[in-house]
Nucleic acid binder design. Structure first.
Length: 255
DNA sequence: ATGGCTTGAGTGTCAAGA
């Protein structure tokens, strides 16, 4: 089973790239973030023609998450149960016995801001929900844009980013709290190139200079991690004309 | 250097992203 995550920064703009990527990589599920469209504008027909169904949780202009998948999905859930949120940031479904969750964690804007407090509260709610999901679903994958670079090696210039948004200690602790539930960071199950990132700023030739952060992640429950064969960041779409600022992250699981 | 791009909204130029 191949699963992946990609913050597309507008599905309308990126749809041709998404269709090409699906064709080239043939994932069983692709989690999307920042679709930036309401369900009415979602390209169900184009995806269907490419062999993919979709579950979407969208809104105008901002946020929006989806899971593109092949086969039959059950138990579609939108939002974190019990957590009131205007922003569409979570969708989950079960595919062939594997529960898949697509998340777009709040950015937080600036350490100490209202948005930062929202981000940390959001993480707390996510962890509380996933603790229950893990107990219920041994095969559980959590994919998305976490807006956290977990360690200094996930940052192109750790000193410049020290305690800044995406890298602050409370954010990293929130990420580690997910690992404490039993999740494994699939990317770190394997030897990886140094300076591996999943996001590069559009400005300042960030990609060409590889000035990036690793903030897009695939977290796997113990049962899934045990059968994970590989996890890679695909930089190819970041090189295209009009790219998303994020690259897809892909994991291959046994079975 | 708090800038530097890109998007969606919607015609002016913002807010938001990370």
């Amino acid at each position: 089973m191949k699963i992946a995550t990609w913050n597309v920064n507008s599905l309308k703009v990126r749809l041709p790239q998404v269709l090409d990527w699906l064709g080239a990589n043939q994932p069983d599920a692709l989690c999307l973030q920042e679709t930036k469209t309401e369900d009415a504008g979602f390209p169900f027909a184009e995806l269907e023609a490419a062999g993919y169904r979709a579950a979407h949780h969208g809104q105008k202009t901002y946020n929006g998450v989806a899971i593109l998948y092949r086969g039959e999905a059950t138990e579609v859930v939108r939002d974190i149960p019990g957590f009131a949120d205007e922003q569409k940031r979570v969708i989950a479904l079960t595919l062939d016995g594997t529960r898949i969750v697509s998340v777009y964690v709040p950015n937080g804007q600036e350490v100490g801001s209202d948005k930062y407090a929202y981000k940390l509260a959001w993480f707390t709610a996510l962890a509380a929900w996933l603790r229950e999901e893990l107990a219920r679903c041994p095969r559980l994958a959590l994919l998305g844009d976490f807006n956290v670079a977990p360690e200094d090696r996930d940052v192109h210039d750790a000193e410049a980013w020290r305690e800044r948004i995406l890298c602050s200690t409370p954010e990293r602790e929130a990420f580690r709290a997910l690992l404490a539930l039993g999740f494994r960071d699939a990317f770190r199950l394997f030897e990886q190139p140094e300076r591996s990132f999943s996001w590069w700023d559009y400005r300042n030739l960030g990609f060409r200079r590889n000035q990036g952060l690793r903030i897009d992640h695939v977290l796997l429950s113990p049962a899934l991690a045990a059968g994970c064969r590989r996890c890679t960041i695909d930089k190819a779409p970041r090189r295209l004309e009009r790219p998303s600022d994020h690259a897809p992250v892909l994991a291959e699981l046994d079975g």
